[in-house]
Computed example of a mutant assay.
Amino acid sequence: MPTPQSVPTVDPRLARALGRPQRGDSVARRTGRSLRKLTASAAQDVAEQTRIARELQQPVTTGRVVAVTSIRGGVGKSTISALLGRTFNHYRHDPVLTLEADAALGTLPVRMGAESVRWACVDLAQILNPAMQLTDITGYLVPVTDGGWLLPAGQGRVGAPLDVRTYRTVTLALRRYFAVTVVDCETLPGEVARTAMDTAHARVVVAPMTAEGVGGTRQVLDWLAQLPHSALASTVVALTAGSPDMLLDVKAATAHLRETGVTVISLPYDRHLAGGGPIRTDMLGQTTLEATVRLAAEVMQRATRVR
């Protein structure tokens, strides 16, 4: 097949509008955190960090697939996928892939810091064969700046949605090469999203911190509980704040979701993530960074339970 043309992820005319990225924490928050660190127990911090690192570095016998979805768009699904992909790559020493399975003008390539994209899932599905080595495969992928690889769903244009057959072909083949594949799915109840949630080793449901978002996510969790295998046991909810002034009671929302038996990790509002541009982990707020690492550790723990 002909080689696709390279396409920039952000229109050059729009790139200027992104401006300089902000730090996730304000100066006041960073100062307050430094003061609190002076009275914190260093031994406890080190023990917790060691435990989390051990979870994230667990060896796998076959590639693990982590599906990320939500009940609607605009709630941080691609952001969570990008954060997970970067976190797994930071802690692990084997190859990590972040795969976009949402062809509806997804933002994952931008969030991962890709300047341009060329090969997409549907292109790769047509040329994959068992004789390929990792070095062959990575020639069709986008290298991520701080490590890892990205496979986009499209080239930033409105196109046909990814079909289940293509999704299965690509994910089953790439599991041979990558220890962890984070899949940024379309929103539920899309067919590919349902397939991904049903077949993944671990699942992340991104829930916006709103009454409607939490209520709809609870329905998704009830659906997962009805699947013929332990889908709910390998699911984690990422509760995201889209504004610094959330009216919903976080404890009550978390308790409502935890009634199903899932773990809920709350990610606070972060000015850097709210900017919508490429994610730089060194610019994230400290609480965001800590919550992301906890989320990744919880997901990896569940992914490695499945053999």
Rank of each mutant, 00 (worst) to 15 (best):
T292F: 11
R294M: 15
S70Q: 10
V262N: 10
P208F: 07
L224Y: 06
G276N: 07
V206L: 03
E48Y: 10
R203S: 05
C185N: 04
V183C: 04
R203N: 14
G139W: 09
G148L: 04
H90P: 04
P189D: 01
A202D: 01
N129I: 01
I127C: 01
L84H: 09
R118G: 07
A233I: 00
L232P: 06
A114K: 07
T9N: 12
R280S: 15
A40I: 11
V264M: 07
Q5T: 12
V122E: 15
S41A: 14
V158K: 15
L162P: 06
T69S: 12
L227H: 03
G190K: 00
P268L: 07
A42E: 11
H90K: 11
E48I: 03
H272C: 05
I137L: 15
P228W: 13
H229R: 11
C185K: 00
V122T: 13
R280W: 12
L151S: 00
K37W: 11
D136N: 12
A241D: 08
G76N: 03
A200R: 00
R305H: 11
L83R: 05
A255I: 06
P4T: 01
D222H: 09
P109V: 00
S70V: 01
R203E: 07
V214D: 14
Q133T: 14
R20F: 13
L239V: 00
G76C: 06
S116F: 05
H201V: 02
V164D: 13
R72F: 05
G156R: 01
A28F: 14
T39G: 08
V220W: 05
T31V: 15
L257Q: 10
L221Q: 05
L239E: 06
M209W: 01
M112E: 06
V60E: 08
L247H: 13
D198M: 02
D25M: 11
Q22F: 14
R307L: 15
A196G: 00
T31E: 11
A274G: 01
R175M: 08
V66R: 09
T260W: 02
R51Q: 13
L150N: 03
D184G: 02
T98V: 13
V46M: 10
G106S: 13
